[in-house]
Amino acid sequence: MTNFVAEDRIMQAIFSLLVKEFTLEWRQKHSFGALLLYVLATIFIVFSVIKNIAPDVWIALFWIIVLFASANASARSFYQESGARQLFYYQLTHSLNFIFSKFLYNFILLFLIGLLTWLGFIFFSKAIVRDYGLFVLTIVLGCLSFSTIFTFISAIANKTPNGSSLMAILSFPLMIPVILTLLKLSAQACRLMQDTGYVKDIIILLSINGMLIGVMIFLFPFVWRD
């Protein structure tokens, strides 16, 4: 019975922190609007420069835009919390609830960005994706990995004086294996290649995520504490 109550409390804490994130986001509508404008402007520039886009370039540009938009989006997640407010959260809740709410919030935000970027790509160029289910799954997996890595790295980078530039340096090398796998999966969803073993790639992404989330749970208290 006690266990059940404890679990219930954790879920409740994470949920209320998540609601807090969305409330904050709603209060600062300008920053979300800035993010949308960022994505839209980038897509517009890309398709003004390249008229006839090849499918593999389409996929590569899609993921690069999503990557940079995600980096921008999740870099904010710890910056809007001042030192005093962090101390307040520290007293209020367990560190894992905190990181999980950040992680979930980033995941939902990045998934939205991914879908919106896709819409923008469809609007400005031709529809390239053939297997919609697989492509949405790829976006989900990609945003899951992006939010795991970016959430954790921004927590580290937040502790440093020049955090925003350090964020890119620390996280982009970690992203490369994820992006390579995502490119393969997207090529499969666009029928650019016929690889029967794409389930293997999904398993790789899931296991990378699983490991990184596990390490995040283990390591975040050390980042949080000092």
Partner: peptide, 26 residues
């Protein structure tokens, strides 16, 4: 680079240890 950007010793050691472990898993 992470190490050199941090001034405070204790913070430097623990943050770089955290990044080292996270990077190794990745």
């Amino acid at each position: 680079i992470l190490r050199s950007s941090l001034e405070d010793d204790v913070k430097k050691y623990s943050l770089s240890a955290v990044y080292n472990i996270f990077a190794f898993v990745a």
